[in-house]
Design a protein around this nucleic acid. Sequence first.
DNA 1: TATTCATATGTATAAATCTTCATGTGTAAT
DNA 2: ATTACACATGAAGATTTATACATATGAATA
Lengths: 115, 115
Amino acid sequence: MRQGENVEVLIFKVLSNEVRLAIIKALFKAPMSVNEICETINEEQSRVSHELRCLTTCQFVYFKREGKKMIYELNGGTATQIINAAENHAKLFGDNIKGCNTLSSIKQKSVTLVK
Amino acid sequence: MRQGENVEVLIFKVLSNEVRLAIIKALFKAPMSVNEICETINEEQSRVSHELRCLTTCQFVYFKREGKKMIYELNGGTATQIINAAENHAKLFGDNIKGCNTLSSIKQKSVTLVK
DNA sequence: TATTCATATGTATAAATCTTCATGTGTAAT
DNA sequence: ATTACACATGAAGATTTATACATATGAATA
């Protein structure tokens, strides 16, 4: 992260990652242990643990111990709200966005709307 | 961007940048030329142009020429929806998130909620 | 208490993104 | 047609983030 970065930017950074987003979406359905998350999203355990730490720190999920397992659960509905709003944009404009190869240097090909 | 990345992740990536978010927020108020954006958010022109290209490609803004100037304008309300939802999360949990130093290796300090 | 299971953490390399500088392009005015 | 203005683009080095591997930790059970 860069210096002085604001909270909103950080929130979007957390969500702008395939694995973290997949974890959140998996937890939409139900609380799960780490292994269950790994199976659901088909990712390696240490990878998932790293991302879960990020998600708990940013309060998108919390956890509780159950014997040897850690059960992760979504924290409130804010993640859902943000993701739904993004899905709305994706629904409207997704086809254009899909063509992107890089972020800073996206190849622009007559994708601009003009009123 | 990584291979096969989905549209939602890309949308969040676009928003997870100080300058791009600042541009969008500047355009909340009114359509502006590139120079006006530069002055408003206090950033260099080439930087702003690069980020505007990203924003137009992803359909958050569009533009029209007016003489020598290019006037940039927000495209619909989806950006506002997404940002408002993020602000909602920030309002609830921002204090914890602020403590973060890096993204993948956030230092976790008893920030976890337990029901 | 030794072992196994479930998960977390540290770290190094690879990959992506940011940022700046130099320069290119289009429009309008001289 | 030349110049100035407004903006866009290319590219490279700097910085951040992702990813994978090795290993550590805590709980339960033998």
